[in-house]
Design a protein around this nucleic acid. Structure first.
Lengths: 192, 192
DNA sequence: TGTAACTCGTACTACCATGTATGAGCTTTC
DNA sequence: GAAAGCTCATACATGGTAGTACGAGTTACA
């Protein structure tokens, strides 16, 4: 969905508009999940009608924004060195994930509201795959526990990450300490 | 707020209506956080106007429902034996918390949407106090870790609990295994 | 340079929920 | 049994957003 590359060609100005709209959507929805289509159009410096020209529904737009955020986050994650000791790899991965997750918490909430159940989860396939692989390999190394399903462990990591973002947002956790706190907590769960 | 016992007297039928409305609100909002005031009135077997007679705004109603759920949950928790070994106490506490949390996840979402920031957290003061005390005592016993703040540990427990509820709801975790899985995960984080 | 693609203002429809107003009729309670 | 309290139907005012329709003007591109 959301205008894939199926269209044979698209004019350069359209391409530009779409990029600006998606970018604005990411920014606004990350600050306030109930930002309206009109707000987003304004922020993108574009008429509301132009938005509807590229995204049939609000849901389409939100999904595009989430896709973009996930893609960007995944690029960051892809740059993390996962070789060697699984414990160190997790630490490095979390140090990067932390920011991505904290930034997009509100956007995620917006998506959960508008998109059909399970869609949000589907869109996370890539980062989930990455984390699953890492945990599996740690388990093979005998470093991580084997008494809980990998899928659950991956989920717990996500929930802790989001929880920390929420605590920081609410001012109950200093943001400088967040990464360290998250890492310690996650490693405890993973090693058992 | 929400009609405390400040009012000198209230007629018996009004008392009855309020009880039915709050109960219906809890049930409906726990299934669908966007249930309308009208839905709730219907389910309570009461006219919509009667609801507005007791709760000025939707937010008031949602808060009353959440209060009631927390109070009921807290009663369950109060029955848990917290004496002796902190590890065992946590295990028992989680076995009970699990159901409470899983049931009210949607209600919580409704409250988060409608109530001012921080209000939901305030309303949880009692269960949070309970958990804080337990973790502190475990720390004094030397059983739980001391390298992370108690407040954070309490939060993590909540996030894991809610996460598990979500996983069960999405069909990614069998509900029979949930309690055990949660317990193992939480104990890992607490012991470090 | 002509045509197709794109932009975008204005205006409008449709929908839906909250909350208010009014008033007739039924219960409690003293 | 009367006053005060409560119920609740109908009707209405409000406010806000999504999405549609139309059409004139602008820009890209071959």
């Amino acid at each position: 969905m959301t205008a894939p590359s199926a269209r044979p060609r698209r004019r350069a100005d359209a391409e530009r508009s779409i990029a600006r709209i998606v970018s604005a959507a990411r920014t606004l929805l990350s600050a306030d999940p109930s930002a309206t289509t009109d707000d987003i159009a304004r922020a993108a410096g574009v008429g509301r009608m132009t938005v509807y020209g590229h995204f049939r529904t609000r849901a389409d737009l939100v999904e595009a924004a989430l896709r973009d955020a996930i893609r960007a986050g995944d690029e960051t994650l892809a740059a993390v060195d996962l070789a060697g000791d699984a414990r160190g790899a997790v630490t490095r991965l979390l140090a990067s994930s932390w920011e991505v997750v904290a930034e997009s918490a509100a956007l995620l909430a917006a998506a959960a509201e508008v998109l059909p159940a399970g869609r949000v989860h589907e869109l996370h396939a890539e980062p989930v795959r990455r984390m699953t692989e890492l945990i599996s390999s740690g388990r093979d190394q005998g470093v991580f526990r084997a008494d809980l399903p990998v899928g659950w462990l991956v989920s717990v990591v996500q929930y802790i990450l989001h929880g920390a973002a929420e605590e920081v947002r609410a001012g109950r956790l200093a943001s400088e300490e967040a990464a360290d706190t998250v890492t310690k907590s996650v490693l405890s769960v993973l090693t058992g």
